[in-house]
Simulated assay, not measured.
Amino acid sequence: MTTHQPPTTPPASAVRVAVVTGGSRGIGRAVSLQLARDGFAVVVNYARDAAAAEKTVAEIAAAGGSAISVQADVADEHAVAALFDRAEEEFGGVDVVVNCAGRLALSPIADLDLAVLDAVHRTNIRGAFVVAQQAARRLRAGGSFVGFSTSVVGTRFPAYGAYAASKAAVESLTLILARELRGRDVTVNAVAPGPTATDLFLEGKTPEQIDQLAKTPPLERLGTPEDIAGVVAFLAGPAGRWVNGQVLRANGGMV
């Protein structure tokens, strides 16, 4: 049986390093940029869109930060292990892992193609587990793992059955992993955004549908990727060290 020894505590002078899966677009891109502004060296993971990842890396570099892009399918344990290897080789270790990678499919439960269900759960459940597994093995003391759920786990909108089910699994995983990392000085939390104005969210929706969703929260607007990135930065930073095993619903006041 393979055992995994906790990484050693980094020296005080060491740069803090963040791995952001799905870090090239949407919320993941905003998280990558925010953590870079906060002084992290950022490993921007992407699945397919190398150009978007390089654009994110270039923006970080232009602002004086440090970043690299690394391709990996989050559900492939060998690719994810190689992603973490690259982070350690390039920057010396890993202090924060943010698993933004995800897949969305909308359909009534009665009509959903089960091949689509498998694809959603491969990324959102298996992928979340694989990334969490590597984070548990690699994060240095003082580190943080931030996963992503969705506020639809609470609102239970029709057509979101497959997606909400996959993210409910992430919420269960969060507290379990926090408890398993007892004594490591590593926090584990999840963020559950509400409707957020990303390209993925806006695609295929009419202006009327978008307006209706924007009026759902009491604040009567859609969230922005930057809103969510600020929550992640809090959980990954010194102000969030006493928050552990929690799911933070960043949704403007929805259920």
Score class of each variant (00 low, 15 high):
G143P: 07
A81N: 06
A81G: 11
L114V: 15
L106Q: 12
A105G: 00
F145G: 03
S144N: 13
Q134V: 06
P108D: 13
N99A: 15
P108E: 11
I109L: 15
F129M: 15
F91T: 07
R103M: 12
F84C: 06
R126T: 13
N99I: 03
F84P: 05
I125A: 08
V94D: 01
L106G: 04
L83E: 01
A105V: 11
G92H: 04
A81L: 03
A110V: 12
Q134T: 03
R138Y: 10
D113Q: 08
G102M: 02
R122S: 13
L104N: 12
V97C: 07
T123M: 04
V120I: 15
S107I: 09
E90H: 12
E90W: 08
R138E: 02
G142F: 00
F84T: 03
F129W: 15
S107Y: 11
A110P: 01
D111K: 09
V97W: 11
L114P: 06
N124L: 03
R126Y: 00
R122Q: 14
N124A: 01
R122W: 01
A141E: 13
A82N: 12
G93I: 07
V96F: 08
V98M: 05
L139T: 03
E90V: 13
D118C: 05
L117M: 12
V97E: 10
G127K: 04
A136K: 06
A132N: 09
P108N: 07
